[in-house]
Computed example of a mutant assay.
Amino acid sequence: MADERERRWKLALGGDDEGLDAPDVRLSRALTALYNPDDEGARRGGLKRSAPSVARWLGDIREFFPASVVQVVQKDAFERMGLKEMLLQPEFLQAVEADVNLVADLMSLRGVMPEKTRDTARQVIAKVVAELMERLERRTAEALRGAVDRSRRTTRPRFADIDWPRTIRANLAQYQPAYGTVVPERLVGFMRRQRRIVDLDEVILCVDQSGSMAASVVYASIFAAVMASLPVVSTRLVCFDTSVLDLTDDLADPVEVLFGVQLGGGTDINQAVAYCEERIERPAKAHLVMITDLHEGGDSLSLVARIRRLKSIGVNVIVLLALSDQGRPAYDARLAGIVAGYGIPVFACTPDQFPSLMAAALRREDVLAWAAGEDIKAVRPEDPPAEES
């Protein structure tokens, strides 16, 4: 108890990091940088008026405090540290790299920004979104652009649709001994099935916008925008905390989507899934991708029952604990295990893996087998609680 009191006093007073563990040192320096900037600790861990330091500091603040406190601290930072002026400086924009965490920081600051600062932040977000779209768009489009129809062949296939065994056999006469290979004059491949509008698969991305899911929200929004631009699927983006925000109509502009997200707040996953359930028109053609750490603040029993019901009527339900470049996320292990116990895939994946995941889902393949092939460790099933047995 005495050690805990000493820890709390050190965090409250700042400047003395001796005896604190690494997370507490980060917390102490983050607060010292704002509330006691003349202290030696601030010189070691302060903002130093540089874009990377600001991004790191804001990320630390969001990690250590609940959303309500984060808003107060950020507001103090705007007033005390001149962050408003920094965001308006062209040098700041030039220093910013395409970083998802920085986008999340700017999104969380939106509520305390004056209008001119918001315009500048929108430019930064637009730059990051453009670079992420360039990285992810082509791969996503190729992965989702319809199932391959192997009953029909073409001599002008896309690269991904080339039937290499048949192509090699058809070009054996072009074997080049000097190079030890065949030079194909004629490609043989599969034609893609043309899909009617009425036959489109429905994809609903249901995204937790609590502070811990910030990077996942950014990536999910960009993927939703890409998928919405493709004529092969019908895409809906739903973000939630204790309320539900349907951003589907804004998907043509991913920057606008991100400005519509409000990071932080509580979490009512059951309410969000209920909203999605009401909008599913054809369960056998529907895919519900829940992106959440499953820290349910609402009715977890109703949530599990609702997910089970959706699966039973044919909806392809997948739970992603995170969609980010980071490692294994923090999540509610008990609830994740219960959901996995009903045969629903529960795991985290990276943005680079997501297009392949969605392609497997649209083909109704075994998603757990896909995850194993990607060396992704899925959550192990747990026995359901007695009242659900």
Results as ranks from 00 to 15, higher is better:
327 G>R: 08
376 I>C: 13
296 E>F: 05
349 C>Q: 03
276 C>N: 04
269 I>G: 02
55 A>K: 01
208 D>R: 04
2 A>P: 00
202 E>N: 09
306 R>E: 09
21 D>G: 01
170 A>K: 10
322 A>C: 03
109 L>G: 00
35 Y>C: 01
212 S>P: 08
385 P>W: 00
143 A>S: 15
141 A>N: 02
281 E>M: 14
98 A>M: 04
267 T>K: 01
193 R>D: 14
272 A>H: 01
208 D>N: 07
361 A>W: 09
307 I>A: 04
192 R>T: 12
302 S>V: 00
37 P>V: 00
156 R>C: 07
265 G>A: 01
173 A>N: 12
85 E>Y: 06
60 D>I: 00
315 V>D: 08
202 E>A: 04
60 D>F: 00
358 M>E: 12
138 R>H: 14
249 D>L: 09
271 Q>R: 14
259 F>M: 13
97 E>Y: 01
164 W>P: 09
36 N>Q: 08
97 E>Q: 04
3 D>R: 06
323 L>R: 01
325 D>L: 11
352 D>M: 12
304 V>E: 05
27 L>P: 03
170 A>M: 08
71 Q>P: 00
99 D>P: 07
34 L>N: 04
157 P>T: 12
356 S>T: 06
136 L>H: 15
67 A>I: 05
221 S>V: 09
107 M>C: 09
59 G>W: 06
266 G>P: 08
220 A>N: 04
130 A>G: 07
286 A>D: 11
250 D>T: 10
61 I>F: 06
362 L>Y: 11
104 A>W: 07
263 L>W: 00
142 E>S: 14
180 G>T: 11
168 I>K: 07
52 P>H: 01
361 A>E: 04
255 V>T: 14
109 L>P: 09
283 P>M: 06
13 L>F: 12
